[in-house]
Structures are given as structure tokens and as C-alpha cells.
Amino acid sequence: MRLGQLLWRRADPAKARHRAGVRVLLPAALPLAVLGIWWLALLRQWVRPYQLPAPGMVLSAFQEMLARGELQQHLAATSSRTVAGYLLGAVPAVVIGIGAGLSQSVRAFVDPTIQGVRAVPSLAWVPLFLLWLGIGERSRVLLIALGAFLPVYLNALAGVEGVDRRLVEVGRAYGLSGAAITTRIVLPASLPAILTGLRAGLSLAWMFVVAAELIAASNGLGFLLVDGQATMRPDRVLASIVAFALLGRISDAALGAIERRALRWRDSLGTAEPPDRTHPSPLSAEGGVTP
């Protein structure tokens, strides 16, 4: 349930119908308006086609690149290095973040350094990576990994730190071992924060793959962007942007689906009504029942 609904909720069928219309029309309104202005700008010759091609031309550039297999090849290059960089950054980030949340000494060991690295805008590392690793796949993947690492680490750390101490006490009171408390209480309790971090890390990974490919690459969607600029093909640039948008949306939706499934238990407010007592009045019942 949306917070707004909670704040201004009314049971009114006319309102409900109105809301259904809002759900369909409102999200489409802004893109349609942009398309309209785009088309109008070309019609009135506010911009030249070599600066901004017509929507149809972008579409046909898209189709043409698909037909030649060009787009697939660049999509594959970009996705594989994003996935590689993301895994390289996010997996250690989860482990180190949890470790730092659990142990004061791990935290004292890694956190100041990571905070120091965080203070540097990540793209500032690019020249160094290029110097060390050369213009190649390794420096690109490393840059993506660095971008993905920070949000995942920060969220995992905050998640573990924010675990309700009272739930940890339940484990202690019932004699669970430290390892059992960690795996059965601390980790599930910090899962929401970790998943938030993983999603943030993914969006940064997409951002950094663009940066990496803009700077130095001979394939990938980022390369397609630079190439389109160099060859004065804004239709190809826009088609690459659309491809990026699709990749980003699809990967985020996939993570979102995983998140919704893993966090079913906290899905907004109570949706199901709790079943009522299945028994008659306690007075008429035959007293206490034994297990």
C-alpha cells in the first residue's frame, strides 16, 4: 500500500475508477509529450535532422543494427563486462560489509580505508587503472567492480549494524551458538538492506560500464555511442541509449523480483486479514489444551 493511500484513503468506487485511469494514463503522459515536442521540433525545423533524427529513424537504425547482428554483439560485450564487474565488486562487498558489521576489529581494519576510497570520485581512478592495467578488459571490469562495491558494502554494513538487538537476544536466551545467531537471525534481518545495496550497486555498474566504454573500448554499447558521435549518426547514438535503458530496466526488474520474493514477509502493511479465533468462546471451551 502506498503511503499516500494511507494518508488520504477513502473508500469510494468513483474514486477507484478514477485511480485506475490514473494508473494507465498518467505514466504515459510525459513520454507522449516528449515524443510530441520531438516531432514538432523537427517539423518546425527548430533542430536539424543531423542533430536530432526523427523517432522513426531511430527505430530503423535500431532495426538495422539488429538485423546485421551488430547490436546483439555490442549488447553481449557490454552485459558480460557489466556482469563480471558487478560480481567482482558486489560479492566481496557483501562479505566484507557483513564482516565489518559483525566484528569491531574487521570494521576497524577495513572501514577507514574504504571510507577514504569513497571520498575519491570513482572516475578519478580511471587514469591510474589505465596506467596499471593498460587499455583492456581488465581495467574496464575493475572500474565497474569499484563502482558496484561501495553501495553494496555500505548497505550491508548498515544492515548488519541495524539489526534489532532484541531479536539477537532471543537467540542468546534460547542458547543458540554465535554462528547460528549470525546465520539464522542477523543475516535474514539484514537482508532487506543488503538487497537495497545490491540494486544500487547494479545501477552504478551500468553507469560505470558506460564510462569505461566511452574512454576505451572497441566494442560495447558505450563504444557504439562514441562511434555514433564520431560518424555523425545521432540515430545510432539514440538507439544505443534505448538499448542501455532496456538493459538497465530488465536487470533491475529481475533483481526487484528476487527482492520481492525474498522479502514477502514485510510486503507493505498487512494485506491478508488474520484469521479469527477458530474456537468458540474460551468459557465454553473445555479449558486448557495440551500440546
Binding site: 532484541r166 531479536l167 537476544e169 532471543v170 536466551a173 534460547y174 542458547g175 537471525i185 535474514p188 534481518a189 537482508l191 522479502l263 514477509w265 514485510r266
Partner: peptide, 15 residues
């Protein structure tokens, strides 16, 4: 073996 019922229920919300 000690069992505790705390002042608040303290159920694990993900179970």
C-alpha cells in the same frame, strides 16, 4: 534449558 517470554513478543518477522 531456559525459555523466555519477553515483555514484547519478539517474533522473527521473516518466519
Amino acid at each position: 534449558r531456559i525459555a523466555v517470554v519477553f515483555q514484547e513478543p519478539r517474533l522473527l518477522p521473516w518466519l
